[in-house]
Amino acid sequence: MISKNKTYRFAYLLASYMIGLFLLSGCYKIFFPSEFSLAVYRFHLLPDFWINITALYLAWLEFTCAICLLFISRYRVAALIIAFLLLSIFTYGIIINLLRGTHFGCGCFSPSPLVKPMSGLNVIRNGALLLLVGLALFSHKKSLKS
């Protein structure tokens, strides 16, 4: 029982750290807010009024979640749920833009104009991350029960 509990705990922490590092790798958004707001604009999903506000807020929300996932265990589950919502929103945006046809990158990790345009690979990557969040939440629940 103890070993099973340890396994679940380990899976929970590992998945949380991986998602935390993933979110942290997108922190360019904090340092280049104008580039990220342009990336948000290029999704063509929001009215003009909300573009900069959303870009600024998403960047810091992502960063806050990453810090909680990596360092603040008390808020880890809450951060996982927010990460799940964020990833779902990003994936929805990417799918819509793939269906519309776009030449632009997703603006996920870099402001560089050399970033490859969005593709199905972005959807697969986000799908894998959503599964990872699911795994972390499941393992956390199991570790509490056992």
């Binding site: 807010p33 707001s37 900069n52 600024l56 960047a59 810091w60 979640c65 909680c68 808020y75």
Partner: peptide, 26 residues
């Protein structure tokens, strides 16, 4: 977490040098 992030966003985009306008005419 949602509120803390909102507060940090508000502070950061008021104090940091690379701030951008909250609302822009795209």
């Amino acid at each position: 977490l949602l509120f803390v992030s909102a507060a940090i966003t508000l502070l950061a985009n008021t104090l940091l040098p690379h701030r951008i306008p909250w609302i822009e005419d795209w």
